[in-house]
């Protein structure tokens, strides 16, 4: 937990250097080494540091028939968005994906995720040292994790 908190804090403040680095100064090899193992393997979700925002749009189905493939699109009008993280609240490991943006990138990301069961999909946007969040519930009829 502590690691995770530290990670979130550092991505807001002092660790801005690390974010800048992952946005293009470092080579792909060193960036891949920066994959945040602690955050991705955490069993619980902690987004309490983020403020709820209407400026984040989550496009996802209300009911997903197949939890193995749930299309999710996140966009935001928050200025200077640096990254978008997608959490699936009730998955074994909630953190699904983090998109780090360069200065030319629009605050928009779309992908497909696996969901074990009905859960909130939470989007956290990092912008100018602050965190914003929004969520949307997706009902899953057939889970997508495990066989």
């Amino acid at each position: 937990m502590l690691d995770r908190r530290n990670f979130l804090k550092s991505s807001m403040g002092a660790g801005a250097v690390a974010i800048a680095a992952s946005c293009g100064i470092l080579t792909p090899i060193s960036v891949s080494a920066a994959w945040n193992k602690a955050a991705f393997e955490a069993k619980t979700m902690d987004v309490s540091g983020a403020t709820a925002s209407d400026a984040i749009k989550i496009k996802a189905p209300d009911i997903a028939e197949n939890g193995a493939v749930v299309p999710v699109t996140i966009s935001t009008t928050i200025a200077d968005a640096e990254s978008i993280s997608i959490y699936t609240e009730k998955n074994g490991t909630p953190l699904t994906a983090v998109f780090n943006f360069g200065d030319m990138t629009e605050a928009y990301a779309s992908t497909r995720i696996k969901m074990g069961k009905t859960s909130n999909v939470v989007a956290v946007v990092n912008a100018a040292g602050k965190q914003y969040k929004a969520h949307k519930e997706v009902k899953v009829t057939i889970g997508g994790c495990g066989g």
């Binding site: 293009g24 960036v31 945040n36 490991t93 780090n100 497909r112 995720i113 994790c145």
Partner: peptide
């Protein structure tokens, strides 16, 4: 650049 977990 994106970091992904196993639930993609």
């Amino acid at each position: 650049n994106a970091e992904w977990g196993a639930s993609v």
